[in-house]
Protein backbone atom coordinates (compact mmCIF):
# COMPACT_ATOMS: atom_id res chain seq x y z
CA UNK A 1 0.00 0.00 0.00
CA UNK A 2 1.26 3.40 -1.00
CA UNK A 3 1.88 5.39 2.20
CA UNK A 4 0.80 8.59 0.49
CA UNK A 5 -2.83 7.47 0.78
CA UNK A 6 -2.46 7.17 4.54
CA UNK A 7 -1.14 10.69 4.76
CA UNK A 8 -3.82 11.97 2.41
CA UNK A 9 -6.61 10.36 4.46
CA UNK A 10 -5.18 11.72 7.70
CA UNK A 11 -4.89 15.23 6.27
CA UNK A 12 -8.46 15.19 4.95
CA UNK A 13 -9.84 14.50 8.43
CA UNK A 14 -13.55 13.88 8.98
CA UNK A 15 -15.75 15.26 6.22
CA UNK A 16 -19.06 13.58 7.08
CA UNK A 17 -21.52 15.59 9.20
CA UNK A 18 -23.21 14.52 12.47
CA UNK A 19 -26.70 14.90 10.93
CA UNK A 20 -29.37 14.41 12.34
CA UNK A 21 -27.82 15.15 15.76
CA UNK A 22 -26.92 18.54 14.38
CA UNK A 23 -28.71 20.19 11.45
CA UNK A 24 -27.07 19.98 8.03
CA UNK A 25 -28.96 22.51 5.92
CA UNK A 26 -28.75 22.15 2.14
CA UNK A 27 -26.74 24.75 0.24
CA UNK A 28 -28.26 28.17 -0.31
CA UNK A 29 -30.25 28.07 -3.56
CA UNK A 30 -31.48 24.48 -3.08
CA UNK A 31 -34.90 24.07 -4.68
CA UNK A 32 -36.61 21.89 -2.07
CA UNK A 33 -40.25 20.79 -2.04
CA UNK A 34 -43.55 22.55 -2.66
CA UNK A 35 -45.69 23.67 0.25
CA UNK A 36 -49.35 24.58 -0.02
CA UNK A 37 -50.92 27.37 2.02
CA UNK A 38 -54.69 26.72 2.13
CA UNK A 39 -55.44 30.27 3.28
CA UNK A 40 -54.14 31.78 0.06
CA UNK A 41 -55.38 29.07 -2.30
CA UNK A 42 -58.16 30.17 -4.69
CA UNK A 43 -59.46 26.70 -5.47
CA UNK A 44 -62.90 27.90 -4.35
CA UNK A 45 -62.91 30.38 -7.22
CA UNK A 46 -62.33 27.56 -9.69
CA UNK A 47 -58.56 28.06 -10.09
CA UNK A 48 -56.90 24.72 -10.95
CA UNK A 49 -53.70 25.80 -12.78
CA UNK A 50 -51.50 23.83 -10.37
CA UNK A 51 -53.48 20.64 -11.00
CA UNK A 52 -53.21 21.12 -14.76
CA UNK A 53 -49.46 21.69 -14.71
CA UNK A 54 -48.57 18.75 -12.42
CA UNK A 55 -47.12 15.86 -14.48
CA UNK A 56 -47.10 13.09 -11.81
CA UNK A 57 -50.54 14.16 -10.48
CA UNK A 58 -49.16 14.97 -7.07
CA UNK A 59 -51.61 17.87 -7.05
CA UNK A 60 -55.09 16.58 -7.70
CA UNK A 61 -58.75 17.24 -7.06
CA UNK A 62 -60.32 14.43 -5.07
CA UNK A 63 -63.79 13.58 -3.94
CA UNK A 64 -64.01 13.26 -0.17
CA UNK A 65 -65.12 9.79 1.04
CA UNK A 66 -68.62 11.20 1.84
CA UNK A 67 -69.09 11.32 -1.96
CA UNK A 68 -70.21 14.95 -2.01
CA UNK A 69 -67.42 17.34 -1.16
CA UNK A 70 -64.23 17.81 -3.12
CA UNK A 71 -60.76 18.79 -2.02
CA UNK A 72 -57.36 19.75 -3.39
CA UNK A 73 -54.55 17.43 -2.36
CA UNK A 74 -50.81 18.04 -2.55
CA UNK A 75 -49.20 14.61 -2.14
CA UNK A 76 -45.42 14.64 -1.74
CA UNK A 77 -45.06 10.90 -2.41
CA UNK A 78 -45.53 11.10 -6.20
CA UNK A 79 -44.19 14.69 -6.29
CA UNK A 80 -41.00 15.09 -8.33
CA UNK A 81 -40.33 18.55 -6.88
CA UNK A 82 -39.97 20.23 -10.25
CA UNK A 83 -41.53 23.46 -8.97
CA UNK A 84 -43.77 24.00 -12.02
CA UNK A 85 -46.81 24.40 -9.74
CA UNK A 86 -45.08 27.14 -7.76
CA UNK A 87 -44.30 29.03 -10.97
CA UNK A 88 -47.89 28.60 -12.16
CA UNK A 89 -49.72 29.55 -8.93
CA UNK A 90 -51.20 33.05 -9.38
CA UNK A 91 -51.76 33.75 -5.66
CA UNK A 92 -48.52 32.54 -4.07
CA UNK A 93 -50.37 29.78 -2.18
CA UNK A 94 -47.66 27.38 -3.35
CA UNK A 95 -44.04 28.05 -2.53
CA UNK A 96 -40.85 26.01 -2.34
CA UNK A 97 -39.64 25.02 1.12
CA UNK A 98 -35.91 24.39 0.96
CA UNK A 99 -34.98 23.08 4.43
CA UNK A 100 -34.16 19.67 2.91
CA UNK A 101 -36.20 17.76 5.50
CA UNK A 102 -38.31 15.31 3.51
CA UNK A 103 -38.88 12.29 5.76
CA UNK A 104 -42.41 11.61 7.05
CA UNK A 105 -43.76 8.95 9.39
CA UNK A 106 -46.81 7.96 7.35
CA UNK A 107 -48.14 8.55 3.82
CA UNK A 108 -50.82 10.84 5.28
CA UNK A 109 -48.12 13.11 6.70
CA UNK A 110 -46.93 13.74 3.14
CA UNK A 111 -50.30 15.18 2.15
CA UNK A 112 -51.61 18.73 2.41
CA UNK A 113 -55.35 18.98 1.94
CA UNK A 114 -57.40 22.06 1.08
CA UNK A 115 -61.16 21.39 1.39
CA UNK A 116 -63.27 22.92 -1.33
CA UNK A 117 -66.09 24.96 0.16
CA UNK A 118 -69.33 24.53 -1.76
CA UNK A 119 -71.86 27.29 -1.81
CA UNK A 120 -75.10 25.83 -0.51
CA UNK A 121 -78.33 27.58 -1.44
CA UNK A 122 -81.30 27.91 0.95
CA UNK A 123 -83.08 24.86 -0.57
CA UNK A 124 -80.07 22.70 0.09
CA UNK A 125 -78.81 22.43 -3.52
CA UNK A 126 -75.21 23.07 -4.34
Amino acid sequence: MELGWLLRGWRTGIVTTPYPTRPDPPPQGFRGRPQLDGERCRIDDGCTVCVEVCLPRALRLETVPNGLDRRLVLDLLPCIMCGLCVQACPTGALHMQSDGELAVRSPQDAQTIVPLEMEVSSDGHI
Binding site: P26, P27, Q28, G29, F30, R31, G32, C82, G83, S98
Partner: peptide
Amino acid sequence: LRLNARLAGHRYLFG
Protein backbone atom coordinates in the same frame (compact mmCIF):
# COMPACT_ATOMS: atom_id res chain seq x y z
CA LEU B 1 -22.86 17.72 -6.04
CA ARG B 2 -23.17 20.37 -3.33
CA LEU B 3 -21.92 22.98 -5.76
CA ASN B 4 -24.59 21.82 -8.23
CA ALA B 5 -27.28 22.16 -5.54
CA ARG B 6 -26.18 25.71 -4.93
CA LEU B 7 -26.02 26.68 -8.61
CA ALA B 8 -29.00 24.78 -9.96
CA GLY B 9 -31.11 24.06 -6.87
CA HIS B 10 -30.62 20.33 -7.46
CA ARG B 11 -27.61 18.08 -6.77
CA TYR B 12 -28.03 16.28 -10.10
CA LEU B 13 -28.96 19.40 -12.10
CA PHE B 14 -32.61 18.50 -12.62
CA GLY B 15 -34.94 21.30 -13.69
